[in-house]
Design a protein around this nucleic acid. Structure first.
Lengths: 144, 144
DNA sequence: CATGCTATCGCAAATGGTTGCGATAGTGAG
DNA sequence: CTCACTATCGCAACCATTTGCGATAGCATG
């Protein structure tokens, strides 16, 4: 709601076009706050408009990422994972055992990488940060 | 050289088989210390044996990873990146601008994630750790 | 050396995502 | 309202990787 209202204008202000295909994706995104894979977004768009073409969806996602309306990172298997409406930048934690995901809040993520950034003058993209491992529950199972 | 010598025995000790296809991949790996993508490994195997099938290579990489002889992480685009003979566990740093890669030594990687692990009782897989951002040179270009 | 068990292979199809290109259709200007 | 410019689309091919399955072939045993 709200946050998506100005999208049409923001797109046109950049000399880009407001098309039916983009409207469909934005409708889907507006209903999907949270994390979602690229493939899942394509599928949901196809529910709204069965003629949806994957490449169009991925290209529109690139545009929206440029505008800061979505960000993406990669799951433990390397597949794309989109995050809708990133009010605050944050990273992700993935459990290799059960597949669960947690957010790493911006402040925590930034302080994690601070040493790395200082030592190497490297600017980390925390929205893209994705860390894999085993959560407490899965760790106990593995030892048992 | 050395480290690969016992592989045949280690494989057979697990009730697994020593096949020509595995021999080819191990030959290729022995010549390729460092980082290399899955696709690149397939290509190099095909140079040795043009009949090489991709799925066989990927499946063999899985068993070698089980044995601890290779590890993999994902580049900034999510594609697989194998690391041969990981004497020490380490993470990777990827520049989104120039595509360069750096290793994050185990000690540094572990201390990075220590807070995260304590706070959540989460065991991070540092060999899978891959951080993206901009290196110093690319950062300067972006500002200019 | 022959035999059988089953791990591994080859193949073909599917998945998730990307790219190049000619055709379509938003959009601002007249 | 028309026109022209060009951003975007649809399509088809391609890339990297995975999966299911029947056929092949290691290798332990007799």
């Amino acid at each position: 709601m709200g946050t998506w209202d100005g999208v049409r204008e923001r797109i046109r202000a950049r000399g880009m076009r407001w098309t039916p295909q983009r409207r469909v994706l934005i409708d889907v995104l507006a209903r999907a706050d949270g994390h979602i894979t690229g493939a899942e977004l394509v599928e949901r768009c196809r529910e709204v408009d069965p003629a949806t073409i994957p490449s169009t969806v991925y290209r529109t996602l690139d545009v929206l990422e440029d505008l800061g309306l979505v960000s993406h990172s990669h799951g433990a298997d390397g597949r794309e994972e989109y995050h809708v409406l990133p009010d605050a930048d944050h990273g992700h934690l993935h459990c290799l055992g059960c597949g669960a995901t947690w957010e790493i809040p911006e402040a925590e993520a930034r302080s994690l990488v601070r040493g790395l950034e200082r030592a190497r003058s490297f600017a980390v993209d925390v929205t893209h940060l994705s860390i894999a491992g085993r959560c407490e529950a899965c760790g106990r199972i593995a030892e048992g």
